[in-house]
Design a protein around this nucleic acid. Structure first.
Length: 195
DNA sequence: CGAACGATTAGCT
DNA sequence: GCTAATCGTTCGA
């Protein structure tokens, strides 16, 4: 089992395996963050993925080396954070959809403009706002400042289900969540054990 | 060059 | 549950 600070080599696996194993891991950006409780996997051979149609100006980081951050603007409003997976040039990634706030909660409250801890990071756009993710972080290594990604230190129950907010490849159950967590963006439909 | 479309969220019914 | 907000990216003409 992987322990401690995750390195680029820890992201070489299939994105759905990496996404599953990231549940329970700690994510900090500038010392602010918490436990990852929800992820989604995307792959080059996946019609719902930004990388499906090949490299473009926006998604070029997805085709770079693993263990780097791919940040994109969603609906013209939100910043969403992904971890690049597989080998350089492949075009796979994991979307960080929700975390359980543990460190820097006051900073997250200020950035989000609300107090309810359950709503600080329960969604990809909310994570971006609470952790001050912007395009400036696109392409940066996850094992260098301001990022810290620590593997989970004990087993946890992970469930899988269909991804959210997409219309293609709904048959792929590549959304993963910490079973029973109150910090998920939404309950996982037809949840089945994943790990 | 124009137009359509989001890996979303918040607020209102 | 439904929809507006909001703008960069992508693709077709």
């Amino acid at each position: 089992m992987v322990t401690g600070q995750l390195q680029p080599k820890d992201f070489i696996g299939e994105s759905h395996d990496v996404a599953r194993d990231l549940i329970g891991a700690m994510l900090l950006v500038g010392g602010v963050g918490g436990r990852i409780v929800e992820t989604e996997a995307y792959d080059r051979a996946d019609p719902a993925s930004h990388s499906f149609s090949g490299p473009t100006t926006r998604n070029e980081v997805m085709f770079g080396p693993p263990g780097h951050a791919y940040v994109y603007r969603s609906y013209g409003i939100h910043w969403c954070l992904n971890f690049v997976c597989r080998e350089k040039g492949h075009g796979a990634g994991v979307l960080i959809r929700a975390i359980e706030p543990l460190q820097g909660i006051d900073a997250m409250r200020a950035r989000r403009g609300m107090d309810d801890v359950r709503l600080l990071c329960s969604g990809p756009g909310r994570v971006g706002q609470a952790l001050a993710i912007t395009h400036a972080l696109n392409g940066l290594r996850l094992d260098h400042a301001p990022f810290r990604v620590l593997a989970r230190d004990h087993d946890c129950d992970v469930v899988a289900g269909p991804r959210i907010g997409i219309t293609k490849a709904m048959d792929l159950h590549w959304r993963f969540g910490l079973a029973g967590s109150p910090f998920l963006s939404r309950p996982i439909a037809a949840a089945r054990p994943a790990a």
